[in-house]
Nucleic acid binder design. Structure first.
Lengths: 232, 232
DNA sequence: GAACACAAAATCGTATACAATATGTGATCC
DNA sequence: GGATCACATATTGTATACGATTTTGTGTTC
């Protein structure tokens, strides 16, 4: 524990808590791809030494959420279009099968939890907090992986969804915003019905929709990371 | 660079080089599951401070090759039987599809490389170095993932194979040793023929064979880590 | 002789200090 | 006036120092 200036006692930030806080901020698009993550700055924010911050940044680098270059420091990753395709192709390989398993195993409380997630997501959208809505939308997917009971695959999916959040920040086409309103609802219904075939198929088409809602045309001349770092 | 006592110049060990060295040693079964990895000891071995060693251990912990418990330090991970099933189920989900892609894309030099791997593996077996043979056998699988050209999925497979090495160390049944002699050869042939269907099917059955060659019966009473640490 | 309590050693977790590298600024030269 | 070099500043990389926790060993007591 550490005692701050206003004499409130806050639990000391750890590697995990910092990594999670940063991960959440990235998920919710509060920090954009390319943003520099200075060690000293973060150590001030979280009230710990650079040692702990460095460890947190390293774990995020290991799952490709941040990019660390020697003597240059850490910045929020800027996935290339190639990487974006790969991430969604990996999701298309893993998640439909996982949804199938989830349909087999889902309990009533699982279904209730998923419905709560959907409601929270809509509430966030109504509250004009699209970042939070996006995060909750991702949480919906990780929750399904958890229900499927394959922790190893679930952790892969979790990192893929985190990276998807970066990809969406970089390549999302505004025009195609409302596609998934019904997709999650239909998926929950299939899970509740233990309809494995339909759950798998719905997940697959949902992911294909997401994938195709990205603008991943090759923009050869441009270095996207730079462009984004400059931003408007 | 750092100048050692005998005035030979060796490149300074980095986080990556230490992580890779440890990873290789685990792959080759030179250090058994459960082995304590003391920070000071490793820092002496690699001629760096504990800072760098800690970073290396953390990256290995992130891919579940080592286990870090607070104030207890790092040790080589001891995957549970549950985890072992999960790892092989994940491989059975990822690798057959990856082999299919590899069959589509494999070039002549890819095939040559794979055949070299197989030869090296046999040579290692002849040289009575089963650890190295196991490592090369894993490398065969990661190489196929690389040929498939999906770096993201390939990195997942890579970590799964590393963990498989631990699982094999813990749960392999000696009796079923020679099953995969022909499996890799047949797979290379399918890849060379660009026979996607057969490559996928051969990979699937190969993994099922491996999975079923493990003794994953629940042994409730025993703590395997201890038993192995004492070993003969 | 066994069990408990306490002390000592070892090891880990975090902070800080120092070194190496990159970046920014200003002076100098053409 | 513009380019270039040198120095100052900032940030990262690594080592060391110190405090906290756990483990181990010893001695005492029952």
């Amino acid at each position: 524990m550490t005692r701050t200036a206003d004499s409130t006692v806050t639990p000391a930030a750890t590697r995990e808590s910092i990594a999670q806080a940063l991960s959440l901020a990235i998920h919710e698009h509060r920090i954009a791809p390319g943003t520099k993550l200075g060690e000293y700055e973060l150590s001030e924010i979280y009230g710990v030494s650079r040692t702990v911050v460095r460890a947190a940044l390293q774990t995020l680098a290991d799952i490709r959420l941040v990019d660390i270059r020697r003597n240059k420091g850490a910045s929020v990753a800027c996935p290339s279009t190639t990487e974006a395709h790969e991430v969604f192709e990996a999701r298309e390989l893993l998640e439909p099968r996982t949804a199938r398993s989830a349909a087999q195993r889902a309990t009533a409380s699982d279904i209730a939890l998923l419905e709560r997630h959907i409601n929270d997501e809509h509430a966030a959208l109504d509250a004009n907090d699209p970042g939070r809505a996006l995060y909750l939308s991702g949480l919906f997917h990780t929750e399904i992986a958890r229900i499927a009971g394959q922790a190893t695959i679930a952790s892969f999916i979790e990192t893929l969804i985190a990276r998807s959040s970066l990809i969406i920040a970089l390549y999302w086409r505004r025009e195609s915003a409302l596609c998934e309103k019904h997709a999650h609802h239909a998926l929950v219904q299939a899970l509740a019905d233990h309809n494995e075939q339909q759950a798998e198929e719905l997940m697959r088409s949902h992911l294909v929709d997401l994938h195709s809602a990205l603008d991943l045309r090759e923009r050869n001349g441009r270095t996207l990371s730079l462009k984004d770092a400059l931003g408007p």
